[in-house]
Design a binder for these strands. Sequence first.
DNA 1: AATGAAAGGATTAAGCC
DNA 2: GGCTTAATCCTTTCATT
Lengths: 199, 199
Amino acid sequence: MRDLDETDFEILRLLLDDARRPYSDLAEAVDLSPPAVSDRVARLRDVGVIRRFTLDVDRTQLHGGTPVLVDLEVDRATTAVSAVRQALLDSGSVEHVFTTAESHLVFQARVPDSDFAAWLFDVVDEAAIGSYDVTLLSGVDWSPDLGGTEFGLTCVQCGNTVDTEGVSTRIDGDLYQFCCPSCETRFREKYAELKEGAG
Amino acid sequence: MRDLDETDFEILRLLLDDARRPYSDLAEAVDLSPPAVSDRVARLRDVGVIRRFTLDVDRTQLHGGTPVLVDLEVDRATTAVSAVRQALLDSGSVEHVFTTAESHLVFQARVPDSDFAAWLFDVVDEAAIGSYDVTLLSGVDWSPDLGGTEFGLTCVQCGNTVDTEGVSTRIDGDLYQFCCPSCETRFREKYAELKEGAG
DNA sequence: AATGAAAGGATTAAGCC
DNA sequence: GGCTTAATCCTTTCATT
């Protein structure tokens, strides 16, 4: 594997702004040939930096429930948190889910006007929820900038930059980057412990 | 103008899943010709339902600050709220901004590890902020589904479905849909009052 | 909204450094 | 390994009905 370089970031920025921009355009912008750009985009996908090409849709213009922000207090067990998060993401009404360091899930959704609790406990397991708090929203905005992000991949175990020695692995469906095999091993051990302790 | 129909929604769903899918593919999926799909996509853009073609990027894989969720209490003046929101969106470090019905701004950002307050007041006007609250995040997820969204555009003034009589107008840079010209007039009046009262 | 022709972009394969 | 060029194939656009 190779480091991401400034060119990859320039490609990301350009695609973030218009994901349908022709590769030949990108190629010109970053001074490469179209196939070279295509290769880099493919690598960005493989490595999981680009999760998908998609749309920014203005959902306030579409029917379908009241936009709310919800703060959920979840059981501290790792599996409970990720199970609830996954249930929310799969519900079809939830757009964003933020997991806090204290095992809260804050999410934004469009819900039926009446009986929020019925909707919630239809989506997630009531037993896993401590308390919750609902706020009405009047606006939802998204800035698809890369902003202050510097370049380079970070090792999820030690935080170092991932370079040529790097390894990328899928664990339980999620893609993780490591700077070296030993970080991968340590992470897997930590992960297994967490999972066991929680299950 | 014409209503959005089930075909438009099918196109949205398909593009949400892969925004680079060829129009010829979409055409086959919805049983139309490629130019017809192209026209519909152009209309979805014109009307503001599609804000842009973009990427879903896994920012946890990139360097650049600690992910946090912030709850900002802002002056209730409409202009203050939208000015602060715009400043956040333009900062480059803020990804999502939710505006609550009570003039709070809840946003997700990646910020420098130290001195959050310095960062915040570098981005937004300190005078407009009442209080704020910061939470550390361990995960940020997004579900690009259309979910329970039924079809049709909603009038921002009265909530009715926007049909053939509809009008779409840009006010202060934002695109709004109205079911009829009189709703547009009423909205403009309300908007002007709000602006005056706040300024 | 469909058709067909013309223009434009993507992808492949071969070869270079 | 990563790049380029050139050829091929596919997609989009435009004029027309």
